[in-house]
Design a protein around this nucleic acid. Sequence first.
DNA 1: TGCCAAAATTAGGGGTGCCTAAATTTAATT
DNA 2: AATTAAATTTAGGCACCCCTAATTTTGGCA
Lengths: 227, 227
Amino acid sequence: MSHTPLPSTLTRSVEDYLKAIYRLSLGGAPAGTTEIAHLLDLAPASVTGMVKRLSEQGLLEHVPYKGVELTAVGRRAALRMVRRHRILESYLVAFLDYTWDAVHEEAERLEHAVSDGLIERMATALGNPSVDPHGDPIPAPDGTMVELVYTPLSEIPVGQSVELRRVETGQADRLRYFAEHGLVPGAAVMVVARQPFGGPIAVRTSGGEQLLGAELAGLLLCAAGAP
Amino acid sequence: MSHTPLPSTLTRSVEDYLKAIYRLSLGGAPAGTTEIAHLLDLAPASVTGMVKRLSEQGLLEHVPYKGVELTAVGRRAALRMVRRHRILESYLVAFLDYTWDAVHEEAERLEHAVSDGLIERMATALGNPSVDPHGDPIPAPDGTMVELVYTPLSEIPVGQSVELRRVETGQADRLRYFAEHGLVPGAAVMVVARQPFGGPIAVRTSGGEQLLGAELAGLLLCAAGAP
DNA sequence: TGCCAAAATTAGGGGTGCCTAAATTTAATT
DNA sequence: AATTAAATTTAGGCACCCCTAATTTTGGCA
């Protein structure tokens, strides 16, 4: 099955818009221009202008005053950027001694500059991984991705041991904090307490430490039941 | 000794101008705007405009109608780009299976996007090399570079064997041709003939092949006398 | 239903960096 | 010294992508 070719020359700016709209599209609803503006740190009016241009290019569909959705072409372009980003992060951690909290910024710039060929060479060197250091799934070169569904830690019963599979934050300081306490993908943790109403959660790490915090609830995901 | 800090945010375009002007400055004379335009594939009038802006920023000195020269700050910024480019080329060849004729284009884009930190990590992984795969010297992180002076092959007497040290061309097809016949830095060659008036030259490679061509004269450099 | 606040868009403007076409300067030649 | 061709600069414009301020639309709520 052949694809409509992706536009060959997207600017860095356009690539960032597509990534942002893709991220927002995961929420299910069409992305609002203000949401996009917030993610990209731009004024909403600027987004309206760019959105108009990208619609004309067929990368997204815009219903004025309603919202923005990626077209099939736009989604492939966005997933291509996601693949680049996650392969880059994986490569930097595996081969150039980066820590998982330090790779994001570097990948954020490189993803706009590397060729597809280099990404594939890096992927090969890594053994074609399916997840990156944060446990995020890596889209395939053809732009397909299996979104892995994990159970949020906040839904694991008290007393159960599980394996962390994914740490969903890009914030370097949080990642550093998690890493210091062994909360990385693959780690085993036991839920030891929970506040009422789904609030903060407490876990015991394999190192015997006990940690408490609201961040733990949503940011750490796991495969339910796996020790 | 401390340096004037380099401007922290140079655009890709500015970085390319500085690199081009640096290359032309090696010829000794101030660079002309038309020369720069030719190197960057731009209209001469565009160069005049940019040159004006860069002079105001203190990156170069422009004497209207005469020519352009880098200031100390501009030269350091240019050498920083040269280091990035050559470390990147070296890394791609050493660790990601690129051939020396394929790295230029990739490095040309990456050099604008990588952080100084990543370049230094790559340099460390390479063992802090002083020359890149083409034999070109790599500037130090502080922006100093020893320009190695080799004897052009065209000046080696007929019958003498020498070691190639540097292949001075960025043209991928020529590099491929040279590589196919073993003409890479480190190779031993013997000059077997020369046309009158410093014209084309003929060499015998260690593989016993005999090659003739005008390109050989200027593009291949060697350490005189070394076998 | 009518009004209000939030969201989104339009209007107008600025910086960058490129272009073409029209001067202008320089340097070489006669 | 005058002419001329090449190099260079100026003038005027355009595309991109951002901004602020003003206006329009929407959706919820009294």
